[in-house]
Design a protein around this nucleic acid. Structure first.
Ligand SMILES: [Mn+2]
Ligand SMILES: [Mn+2]
Ligand SMILES: [Zn+2]
Ligand SMILES: [Zn+2]
Lengths: 153, 153
DNA sequence: ACCAAAAACTAGACATTGTCCAATACTGGA
DNA sequence: TCCAGTATTGGACAATGTCTAGTTTTTGGT
């Protein structure tokens, strides 16, 4: 059915397989998921996939520019299909929830350091760290009761 | 000899041990080193230290605000004693070399997203990605000969 | 439709970085 | 000096990702 997805892969020089189509669809369905979450999603689509294939597909899709990988501290890598707009991310220190933040500039690198130390800079990665609304109200309600990160994603 | 380091620890409520003094000194000696590198450095100072103790000391020092931990993608965590100025980093995609970049604002969070999605933001982490001078000239000189990251740190 | 070559998939071992835990050793105050 | 509280240690364990050899699938040409 997703005839266009097949063509999308081919246009980018990627050979079409059921696994890659499913991985791409999984990334598209919900942004910022981890490889493990994506593997789960793919299994519910096509029955089975090996861990290695998920990693390979994600790498291939990322290298060819169909998806983007983000690697926040204290989290496994996450993937999204919103690309080309150089947007940034807002991440909850407590539960790890990730939300998109538009970049006012758009093109990368959107910021320039005063002194680039001779480096050829191609990207300014910005991550805003804080607490999400759910974690804020959790803290207010139950105080220090449970200090373990809850899942608000 | 480093009488002041002992007092520094005590002032921050940290009990003084040879291991912690050495770890702190190692971090101070050279910024942006990994836990493993720091363990090596400490061993050359005091003979031996366990891996776990290095991690514990680094965490303790970081929690008490004596040092800072940075966790760039595709790299183990790195540590530095330059704190309180909210400075940023410039990292080589090829060899991983890290250099400091002053933050023009200073106070965190130095940037504000247009839409904070209800998050309470406490830090804007900025990482500039690119290629260091050494890797640039390596590429020019030896072309694609060796595509493996060289150590320019 | 069929075949061979090229590419992708799989399972399992392995690597890296970090954490948990129980036993032992040290530190700081009485 | 002695004791209670901390810190250190080694070893097991956890999480995430990579490598590899063998098998299966895809692709392009007949
Ligand atoms: Mn995003
Ligand atoms: Mn720094
Ligand atoms: Zn949260
Ligand atoms: Zn470099």
């Amino acid at each position: 059915m997703p005839e266009d997805a097949e063509q999308l892969l081919r246009q980018h020089g990627i050979t079409v397989t059921a696994q890659r189509l499913a991985v791409l669809r999984a990334v598209t369905e919900k942004p910022h998921r981890t490889a493990d979450d994506l593997a789960e999603a793919v299994r519910s689509m096509i029955g089975a996939i090996s861990r290695q294939t998920v990693y390979s597909a994600l790498q291939e899709l990322a290298e060819r520019g169909l998806i983007r990988r983000i690697q926040p501290a204290n989290s496994p890598a996450r993937y999204e299909d919103r690309i080309g707009d150089n947007h940034h991310h807002l991440i909850c220190r407590n539960c790890g929830a990730v939300v998109d933040v538009d970049c006012p500039v758009g093109a990368a690198p959107c910021l320039k350091p005063c002194d680039d130390a001779g480096y050829a800079i191609d990207e300014a990665e910005v991550i805003y760290w804080g607490r999400c609304p759910a974690c804020i109200s959790d803290a207010g309600a139950t105080a220090q009761r449970n200090s373990d990160p809850t899942n608000h994603s």
